[in-house]
């Protein structure tokens, strides 16, 4: 009886150890590195300090040219906006967005790099902002 019990425990432990040892690598941010190679921005949002959108219409995302074009309301305080990127599954963004971002230098548009789930593909996206022009 005792021998059966010990055998059972050993088999269970070996099974668990085997399962645990299967390789699921993580990157420097603690995020899972997967097999996905897709690398694109699926949606882009820009919020003001009141957390309301400052876009006048949907952002135009060109995944071939790797550009995002956004038109914002006249008078938008571009020094204090919160960008929001929606990415393909498992991808991540560099640099990370940790708060308000200054987009006021329209001549030098900001560039964000999308990194695929397998961390092998990197695509820089340029965010072009146009402020609604006063007639």
């Amino acid at each position: 009886m005792k021998r059966y019990f010990i055998t059972f425990i050993v088999i269970t432990l070996v099974t668990f150890s085997w399962v645990r040892c299967t390789d699921f690598p993580i990157d420097e941010d603690g995020l899972l590195i997967t097999t996905r190679g897709q690398c694109y921005v699926s949606n882009f949002e820009l919020l003001g300090v009141d957390f309301q959108t400052v876009r006048t219409q949907s952002a135009v995302i060109d995944t071939t040219a790797q550009t995002i074009n956004v038109v914002v309301f006249y008078g938008t305080d571009l020094k204090n906006v919160y960008p929001q990127f929606s990415l393909v599954t498992d991808a991540k963004l560099d640099p990370k967005i940790v708060g308000k971002v200054d987009f006021s230098d329209l001549a030098n548009p900001k560039v964000y790099t999308v990194i695929s789930g397998n961390r092998l593909v990197k695509k820089p996206y340029t965010v072009y902002i146009t402020v609604q022009a006063k007639p």
């Binding site: 006048t56 309301f73 006249y74 008078g75 609604q132 006063k134 007639p135």
Partner: peptide, 18 residues
């Protein structure tokens, strides 16, 4: 103002004339 959204505003006197 045609073409832009301005409507109700609270602006500091020293702000841009825009």
């Amino acid at each position: 103002i045609t073409g832009i959204t301005f409507t109700h505003a609270l602006v500091a006197p020293a702000s841009s004339p825009d």
